[in-house]
């Protein structure tokens, strides 16, 4: 089946180096929990579920641990808590909604609010002022009457 065209050394070395562990596969159950956990390999910004780096030293053991705990009947939250206990809050893929973590989402929202306020200020500051009437309605009426009178004379 294998067609080997080059040296035996290449076969041995390649066979050794190219071998993969089957334990890296992501089942839907592992994906469900793994999506909540950050891959802490330091080389990617993916989650434990989505890290596809070959032989990742963090996500592969993490998936194995998730699978093991799921086999033992642990709930998703328990598994996530277990990771947080071991690694700290950095184990979570997204900042938690508590403590300083709230700032992660709140700050961009506040920034957009500040931006809208700035636009509001800009619009008020640079909007063309409405025209201000320079005479009263009575004065306008007086001139209108005058015009009508003069036009009637023309007739």
């Amino acid at each position: 089946m294998f067609r080997l065209r080059n040296s035996a050394l290449a076969v041995l070395l390649a066979g050794y180096c190219l071998a993969q562990s089957s334990s890296q596969y992501v089942t839907p159950e592992i994906r469900r929990v793994g999506d909540k956990l950050a891959c802490l390999c330091g080389a990617c910004k993916n989650t434990v579920a989505t890290c596809q780096m070959l032989e990742c030293h963090y996500s592969l053991p993490a998936r194995q641990r998730i699978a093991k705990m799921q086999k033992e009947g642990a709930a998703d939250a328990v598994i996530v808590d277990d990771f947080v206990k071991r690694e700290g809050k950095k184990a979570l893929a997204e900042p938690p909604n508590e403590g300083f973590g709230i700032m992660a989402l709140a700050t961009p929202v506040l920034a957009i609010g500040a931006g809208l306020a700035l636009i509001g200020w800009f619009l008020r500051r640079y909007r063309k002022p409405n025209a201000v009437p320079v005479m009263t309605d009575e004065e306008v009426q007086k001139y209108q009457d005058q015009i009508d009178k003069e036009f009637s004379k023309l007739d």
């Binding site: 891959c39 993916n46 989650t47 809050k89 950095k90 992660a104 989402l105 961009p108």
Partner: peptide, 19 residues
């Protein structure tokens, strides 16, 4: 977060996508 709260908090792809 590490400088202010003393604990590193990860911000990964799901957060960036959410925002």
């Amino acid at each position: 977060s590490e400088a202010i709260a003393g604990e590193k908090i990860s911000v990964d792809a799901p957060w960036f996508n959410r925002v």
